[in-house]
């Protein structure tokens, strides 16, 4: 792959909101191409680096997972505020994905069911401010912040991710088509 004209390494930040980290695993599946990538980019806040917050100027944010609770919203907003380009990364980020299967249920019923006392006689939903509150539904990322690119797939395959990133890093509009384009 051709080196970008800008010698500065691109800063990438990644996160998984209401997701399963499967998209991140798929990212790691680009295998030896990671070395090629490492020559061009550096990772900022990400599960890969364990950096807890974004530095101010990231070039690219990969957001896995839908938005299911207040914490997701805060994390997503931090990435949006600090990245030039934000990518909805994987099926859940694109349309809520499997976590959105709860969307036809009342969130109150979900909570009551989960926090029932063992004998079923009462519910004790915790009120600890440390715990993020659930949103009424699981939402796609683009319904909460502006999104620049969508990369669907559950997860997007390593080849799909690689195609997307190399397009982006070489200044082409990313294009994902058959057989790389998959929703599952």
């Amino acid at each position: 792959m051709n080196a970008p004209m800008n010698p500065r390494k691109l800063r990438i930040t990644t996160t998984s909101l209401s997701g399963c980290f499967g998209c991140h695993m798929s990212f790691l599946d680009i295998d030896e191409r990671l070395l090629e990538l490492a020559a061009l980019v550096e990772f900022d806040r990400s599960p890969i680096t364990d950096i807890k917050h974004c530095s101010q100027h990231c070039d690219l944010a990969l957001v896995e997972g839908g938005v299911c609770n207040a914490e997701n919203v805060h994390v997503l907003r931090e990435l949006r505020a600090n990245a030039k380009i934000l990518v909805a990364f994987g099926a859940c980020a694109v349309n809520g994905g499997l976590p959105a299967q709860r969307n036809h249920l009342d969130v109150g019923q979900c909570l009551s069911q989960v926090y029932r006392t063992p004998d079923g006689s009462a519910t004790a939903i915790p009120d600890d401010p440390e715990l993020p509150l659930l949103l009424d539904k699981v939402y796609p990322v683009n319904e909460v912040v502006r999104v620049d690119y969508f990369l669907p797939g559950c997860p997007p395959s390593a080849d799909t991710i690689w195609k997307f990133l190399t397009d982006l890093l070489t200044g082409r509009t990313p294009r994902i088509e058959h057989p790389l384009l998959k929703f599952d």
Partner: peptide, 20 residues
């Protein structure tokens, strides 16, 4: 950009149940 839905309102049910 404004979100597609009212975020704070989307928390209201959980807020009420948690008494927060």
């Amino acid at each position: 950009f404004v979100p597609a839905f009212d975020l704070d309102a989307a928390l209201s049910r959980a807020r009420e149940l948690a008494g927060r």
